[in-house]
Amino acid sequence: MLLFKIKYHIIAVFQKIVLKLIYRKQISFGKKTTWRSSFKVMIYKNACVNIGNGCFFNNYCSLNSNLNITIGNNVIFGESVKIYDHDHVFKKSSVLIKNQGYKAMKVEIGDNCWICSNVTILKGTRIGKNCVIGAGTVLSGNIPDNSIVKSN
């Protein structure tokens, strides 16, 4: 078990270096933030991702930023959590959706939250401090501090 943890911490350190080389000032990681396998980050031009201290991302998490994603301190993520601060514009039926661009709104996650497995966080979402977001929830909007949110 200890060798397993050491392996993933070493891989995460290497990936942090690579992500900093690719995205430079567009990405920041706090101290003791780490992840397991298949952690993915996509940051578009002029967008940014800021991750606080002591965060943990389980397998297959992804952050997709066209504007701004901010994650507080000591936030833990279950497997396969997806965060999007944008979505496609689809107003004109005569124009291909892929050619209509994006609409973006920042995503904020407060300190000391637990985002359970298979959660999808959509643009414009603000999650307060000390929140738990239940497995499989698709989330948008404002979630007050100390909330528990789950899907039926």
Rank of each mutant, 00 (worst) to 15 (best):
Ser65Glu: 07
Ile76Met: 11
His86Met: 07
Ile109Gly: 04
Ser65Tyr: 14
Val149Cys: 09
Asn59Glu: 09
Lys123Cys: 00
Val149Ala: 07
Asp111Phe: 06
Tyr84Ser: 05
Ala12Phe: 11
Leu21Ala: 13
Cys131Leu: 06
Asn66Glu: 11
Asn59Tyr: 06
Ile76Asn: 08
Asn146Thr: 04
Trp114Asn: 04
Lys20Thr: 10
Asn73Lys: 08
Ile127Tyr: 06
Ala104Glu: 02
Tyr23Gly: 12
Lys31Arg: 13
Ile121Arg: 00
Lys82Arg: 12
Ile51Thr: 05
Ile127Ala: 11
Gly134His: 05
Tyr44His: 12
Val89Pro: 06
Ile69Arg: 01
Phe39Pro: 01
Ile97Cys: 06
Leu122Glu: 02
Ser80Gly: 03
Ile76Leu: 09
Phe4Glu: 15
Gly54Tyr: 05
Ile71Gly: 01
Gly101Trp: 03
Asn68Pro: 03
Ile143Arg: 00
Asn99Ser: 15
Cys116Asn: 10
Lys16Phe: 07
Gln26Asn: 09
Trp114Cys: 10
Gly54Val: 05
Val107Trp: 02
Asp85Met: 09
Glu108Gly: 04
Ala12Ser: 15
Asp85Thr: 00
Ile115Ser: 08
Lys106Thr: 12
Val149Trp: 08
Leu67Lys: 06
Cys61Asn: 14
Leu19Val: 12
Leu139Asn: 06
Lys106Ala: 13
Asp145Cys: 02
Lys103Ala: 12
Asn112Phe: 13
Ile148Asn: 08
Tyr84Pro: 03
Val138Thr: 11
Gly141Ala: 10
Ser80Gln: 07
Thr120Ile: 09
Phe39Gly: 04
Ile109Pro: 02
Phe56Pro: 04
His88Ser: 13
Ser151Met: 08
Ile109Arg: 03
Ile97Thr: 12
Gly136Ser: 14
Cys48Lys: 06
Ser140Trp: 01
Val119Phe: 00
Ile127Val: 12
Gln15Phe: 11
Ser38Lys: 14
Lys45Asn: 14
Gly124Ala: 15
Cys61Phe: 02
Cys61Trp: 02
Asn146Leu: 03
Lys82Gly: 11
Thr70Pro: 10
Leu122Ile: 02
Ser62Phe: 00
Arg24Trp: 04
His9Gln: 13
Phe14Tyr: 14
Thr33Pro: 07
Ser94Tyr: 09
Ala135Lys: 05
Asn46Gln: 14
Phe57Pro: 01
His9Asp: 13
